[in-house]
Amino acid sequence: MPRILVVYASMTGNTEEMAEAIAEGAKEAGAEVVAKEAFDASAAELNDYEGIIIGAYTWGDGDLPDEFTDFYEEMDTLDLSGKKAAVFGSGDTSYPIYCGAVDTIEMKLRKLGADIAGESIKFEYNPTETEKEQGRSLGRRVASLAAAG
Rank of each mutant, 00 (worst) to 15 (best):
147 A>L: 14
147 A>E: 15
108 K>W: 07
80 L>K: 01
108 K>N: 08
19 A>C: 13
100 G>W: 12
4 I>Q: 15
79 D>V: 08
92 D>K: 04
20 E>K: 13
27 K>C: 06
67 E>S: 11
14 N>I: 03
3 R>N: 15
41 A>R: 05
1 M>E: 10
46 L>V: 03
43 A>N: 04
80 L>W: 01
134 Q>H: 03
85 A>R: 14
7 V>C: 00
89 G>A: 06
117 A>Y: 03
23 A>L: 11
131 E>Q: 13
91 G>M: 10
11 M>E: 15
83 K>R: 15
55 G>D: 09
110 R>T: 11
29 A>N: 06
69 T>V: 14
44 A>F: 07
103 D>P: 02
50 E>Q: 15
70 D>S: 11
66 D>P: 06
45 E>V: 02
65 P>R: 12
29 A>I: 14
98 Y>G: 02
37 E>N: 14
24 E>V: 05
4 I>H: 15
120 S>C: 01
79 D>T: 11
9 A>V: 04
97 I>W: 12
30 G>Y: 01
6 V>W: 05
37 E>Y: 04
60 G>V: 12
140 R>A: 01
113 G>Y: 05
53 I>L: 14
38 A>D: 00
62 G>P: 11
136 R>H: 02
60 G>D: 14
36 K>Q: 07
69 T>H: 02
53 I>R: 10
12 T>K: 04
24 E>L: 07
106 E>P: 05
139 G>N: 04
99 C>V: 03
91 G>I: 08
144 S>R: 15
106 E>A: 05
83 K>A: 15
21 A>S: 12
95 Y>H: 14
123 F>P: 00
113 G>V: 04
116 I>N: 05
50 E>I: 09
87 V>S: 07
52 I>W: 12
52 I>Q: 10
75 M>W: 06
90 S>R: 05
84 K>E: 14
61 D>A: 13
70 D>R: 05
141 R>H: 07
6 V>H: 07
123 F>L: 00
24 E>K: 14
80 L>T: 00
71 F>L: 10
122 K>G: 02
112 L>C: 07
120 S>Y: 03
91 G>E: 11
105 I>L: 12
100 G>H: 10
